[in-house]
Design a protein around this nucleic acid. Structure first.
Lengths: 215, 215, 215, 215
DNA sequence: TATGAATGAGTCTTCATTCAT
DNA sequence: CATGAATGAAGACTCATTCAT
């Protein structure tokens, strides 16, 4: 259905045309991390990026979430994989390595934990399906290795090797994702990623086991 | 009356007028847990409950999330508090008690973990502010007690007493909330709440420490 | 995605609630006949009907064209069928009966011709598929009967029985649909449906054959 | 440059800059004939032509329909005029000549009938006003001549000379424009322009008059 | 000449909300 | 108490159009 008559839109020069796409993705990632995918309208993202809402459509159509997954989330998870390097032998070393890899990535990409927990791990997350098939390898490998260790009697029989992986994610991603509310609850500004890492290492090493030397 | 539009799918008879409010809250809780608060419209909740959208407005206006917090979430968290009973002495026993209390509640209210993680703990959750001021006591008490234990040298110095609380939530709530995706990833139907509890106990007891007896 | 805050829409009482659906269909039929389906926005139809654009969606969703076909177009075509009654024997009488039936319906439903020509008969029309399967019987029956007559040597061998049907539609529907421009072209206010009927009868009877009596 | 959006399907090389305008007009004519003017966006036309949407604007602005009328429709109608030659004397010969002229043009420009019927003749057509003042001569002349013949008693008194013109258009343009649906309805691939012409001649000669020789 | 980038406007759709019943 | 009717607001999407290149 044809429209009316003369308008004059044209172009408001934005800093650098080549960066605009990345700029929009940044805004989207930020919005998704702050409020969740479902609560983030293209409009709000455009406003945050300082552009016209139609531009978001122009660049991404209805594929903005997919683009965020492909171009932001997965590359960052690849960093985690890379950070694992040659996986160490002992379960504790393996877990510690995982903690270091994840915490390092979180430090570089502070938006990651909230996005990962809400949109990937928790049931109903928007990125579930898109991500699922792409990063099964790492957790499966870690779980398998831990299973071997357990069968060899090297970790407690009560542990579930698969849930060890989950616990590792809990000690890092989940802790980082929920850090703001704990900071507020404990009135503690010092709950940064280094604290998280340190705590995770200690937790992996002993759990809550008593450190008192038995008589 | 619009005849050609899709009618709603045959109203489920709601037993009793007094139950209607509870029925709506049930539907809301379910929807919030499944898809998140932001993605759950009152309309969809009404449809799921088999009632007119106007009715949701009539009962709750725009305060449905608040009502869910007050009448569903907080009572359930009170169960957790009750489940803690008289807190035990040793850190390990304290943690284990927490695990049991939370897992028991999860068993009775399977919608809890997803809701709690997404809408309370993760940054940007819809229930954050409403819940924050009502729930501080327990974690603060546990953290304080663990702090004492640490100062007494009874748990590892590398642990952060506050993050121990977070880790406990991670071992229970977060694990349960993300269980579906792990079930899918590990192709494991057996990852139920009992597995979670058992694993958590073992993890608290030893972490990933080696169980090999030194020669 | 939730909205802002307090509005106050409610209801502007429209003449009679039961009539509203019919009122909207009337407006839609009129708009479709005037400007074509593709050029008729729900907005424009709502404006013409004096209601909110959202109401059109409330009643019809994206099925407004279908509703117009089912509830306006097809019933009217049923009138044509009824008007055919027991089909007469001779081709000329059959054609004349068709002309009368169609002209009678056009007289009662002046919007019909434009709609029928543009949206049903001309290639690319919006109602093509919806209508096609529903009214094949009449033209096929008429064509068959004319074919019989032709094989019996009762109409000219040069005629195409199928195109006779088309010609009948041309003499009635098409003529009525294009009447406005001919009225303007010939500056003739008298080109009404009666003129069309009379002319069609005469044309069927003799074509453009000379009426001069051969010596 | 938006990479994740669907790119247009590989630009067809346009032989020569001077041809581009004609190429665009071709695409426009085709789209207008296929779907109607109102349903044909400049964007879709550009896509079909394999060029950038801005180019259509560059060449035609919002005057593309006007250009189609001026540069395609009117020249083709001029061919019809030319095809009429020196108009014959008798009404039947005049009508037959018109049929031949129009059918010849249709054969060379298959897009013509749909466009002419929908956008010129049927009420609300997009080309109405643009064409109206440019095409009056021929029909008026034919009608006048037929009026003379009628006053001289050489055609049936029941005919309307003006509507004879309309009937001629109906026997040719309208029949051709609606041919696809009749082909489908009668499952007849043989309904081509020659069939139309032959039928029209026969219809002009006798109408549906009986060919049986009275005893 | 021709294009990609960018925008304002318009359409459709859905939603929360209100009113009369 | 509960519902259907009706609306304004907002979101997604598409379009015509303009500007710089």
């Amino acid at each position: 259905m044809p429209a009316s008559r003369p308008r004059r839109p044209g172009r408001r020069p934005v800093q650098d045309a080549t960066d605009l796409r990345a700029h929009l993705l940044d805004a989207a990632v930020q919005a998704y991390a702050n409020a969740g995918v479902a609560a983030s309208t293209n409009r709000a993202i455009a406003r945050a990026a300082g552009v016209n809402p139609a531009l978001v459509n122009y660049y991404f159509g209805d594929r903005l979430p997919d683009a965020v997954v492909e171009e932001r989330l997965l590359p960052v998870m690849a960093e985690v994989m890379a950070g694992m390097g040659e996986p160490p032998e002992t379960p504790l070393a393996l877990g510690s390595r995982f903690v270091d890899a994840v915490c390092g990535v979180i430090e570089r990409h502070p938006w990651l934990p909230a996005l990962w927990i809400r949109e990937v791990l928790v049931d109903g997350g928007a990125f579930r399906d898109a991500v699922f098939s792409r990063i099964g390898a790492l957790p499966r490998a870690v779980a398998a290795r831990l299973g071997d260790a357990q069968r060899a009697g090297r970790i407690d029989a009560g542990l579930d090797p698969r849930l060890v992986v989950v616990s590792l994610v809990g000690l890092t991603m989940f802790t980082a994702a929920s850090a703001p509310i704990w900071r507020r609850l404990f009135d503690a500004d010092d709950l940064d990623i280094d604290t998280v890492r340190r705590h995770a290492h200690a937790f992996l090493a002993h759990g809550l086991a008593s450190t008192e030397t038995p008589p």
